[in-house]
Design a protein around this nucleic acid. Structure first.
Length: 431
RNA sequence: GCGAAUAUAGCUCAACGGUAGAGUAUAAGAUUGUGGUUCUUAGAGUUGCAGGUUCAAAUCCUGCUAUUCGCCCCA
């Protein structure tokens, strides 16, 4: 019986892994250039970690199980909660701000479709204890920097601030559960349903009007003035708007201005407190969001002292999809640079010695292991995409020489074994 | 969790009720130690799985599984 992959999972072959590695390494470089240090947390955690954050209902879409010690555990569905736990366990007394980044797979029991899998990868970061518009600006600039570095250009970067609408609702003494319903529809962008909902609630006509106007607003920093004129004497909302304006001004300084202010971003989750952002790439179907994040106060939920944090994550698989959609050039190198080919069967042992010498000299090299004929060997070397073939023949080896063949030009020369490694170092540009 | 489409060789697809084929990839060969082109040959499929209708099923029907597209949710 043939055993197949579990639903919603994927196998990655080496060509695809090369592309993923390239993007992964690029992101790593950028994050580290911004002063972030990599952390790793367990693949599974106490189930409570996630239910505390997202409510009991989250169990529906989590892989969770009891271990042999009757502990309730869960495969992590995201990484913000584990990182917050790590902070509480290890880093509460460290100097702030703390900059951490992570890359790892997460698991959700959901129905798979394009861009949505049961095992997927997130690349993200948390900046803990540095709440300020400039901290937020730096995080946003870094996210954009990452996309820039991998050559992804066709995206929309939406920035909002939950404080504005939340303050308005709080001032009007709207109960928490009703606020949740409202924010849910705001996030969905379902204006019609939202209007229905507001009509059924005990909400003044003017507030209703303000809300409906606010969520429609999209644009660059010029919309700040527009928003200010709409909000009527709500101190909290003005404060949040000032923060947003401050953030946008800082973004200019950090060199990123390709954003869209969008107050319709709600990000569903309650713990987001201020700035929120989402990045979309069109043409990816329903799963067009490649990244999301914002400023939150999650640590308090887990019982720590209040610390404002800002974080975001890239949906790594969706970033890869977006790159493919955009036909972005992903630099991919061949497996090896050199192939060592014995020209007759009694030259095999010499070939093995030669290939090992090359490898010890730091040259990536492969050798015939399938006892193929010379023609097939060169054909195979061609398939590997090597730059050079070393042809080991009995006549040459007597003089301590081999033939070095440039696979691209077809030129070949006789070269002493003593000089082979040095010559290849020069030709391949290896230090 | 709900609705819809699809499932044939490693890959891309054909056959549309009457013996499963092509392209491509793979392997071997075209006389001694030379590739990317060409030619010859070969292997490769219980047609996703399990039932049903029929003299006869890849083809029609049902269920299951998987993938894809929406809804939902998110990354």
């Amino acid at each position: 019986m043939e055993i197949s992959r579990p639903r919603g999972t994927r196998d990655f072959l080496s060509d695809e892994m090369k592309q993923r590695k390239y993007v992964e390494n690029t992101f790593r470089r950028v994050f580290e250039n911004y002063g972030y240090g990599e952390i790793k947390t367990p693949i599974f955690e106490d189930l409570t970690l996630f239910t505390m954050k997202s409510g009991e209902a989250i169990k529906e879409e989590i892989y969770h199980f009891k271990d042999k010690g009757e502990r309730d555990l869960a495969l992590r569905p995201e990484l913000t909660a584990p990182v917050s736990r790590l902070y509480l366990n290890e880093l509460q007394r460290s100097p702030k701000p703390i900059k951490m980044y992570y890359f790892g797979s997460c698991f959700r029991y959901e129905r798979p479709q394009a861009g949505r899998f049961r095992q997927f990868w997130q690349f993200g970061c948390e900046l803990i204890g540095g709440k300020s518009p400039e901290a937020e600006a730096e995080v946003i600039a870094m996210a954009a920097h990452c996309l820039n570095e991998i050559g992804l250009t066709d995206y929309e970067f939406h920035i909002g601030n939950l404080g504005i609408i939340r303050s308005l609702l709080n001032d009007a003494k709207i109960p928490a559960d009703e606020q949740g319903q409202i924010m849910g529809l705001v996030d969905k962008g379902d204006v019609e349903e939202l209007e229905n909902l507001l009509n059924n609630m005990d909400i003044s006509g003017s507030l209703k009007e303000i809300l409906l106007k606010l969520i429609e607003i999209k644009g660059h920093n010029e919309v700040i003035g527009e928003v200010r004129s709409i909000i009527k004497k709500c101190e909290g909302a003005f404060k949040a708007l000032d923060d947003l304006e401050d953030l946008l001004n800082h973004l200019e300084t950090f060199g990123f201005t390709n954003y869209i202010v969008n107050l319709g971003i709600a990000r569903g989750l309650d713990y987001y407190s201020g700035m929120v952002f989402e990045i979309y790439v069109h043409g990816l179907g329903a799963q067009k969001q490649i990244s999301g994040g914002g400023t939150y106060n999650l640590i308090e939920i887990f019982g720590g002292e209040p610390v404002e944090s800002t974080g975001f994550a890239f949906g790594f698989d969706r970033v890869m999809e977006a790159l493919k959609k955009q036909n972005a050039e992903i630099p991919v190198e061949g497996h090896v640079d050199v192939f060592v080919a014995p020209l007759s069967s009694n030259m095999r042992k010499d070939s093995f010695k030669i290939v090992q010498d090359l490898r010890r000299d730091g040259i990536s090299a492969d050798v015939d292991l399938a006892r193929k004929k010379v023609k097939k060997l060169l054909s195979y070397a061609d398939h590997l995409g090597v730059k050079y073939a070393v042809l080991v023949g009995a006549r040459d080896i007597e003089d301590g020489k081999v033939t070095l063949k440039n696979m691209e030009s077809g030129n070949q020369e006789l070269i002493g074994l003593d000089n082979l490694a040095m010559k290849l170092h020069d030709e391949l540009g290896i230090d």
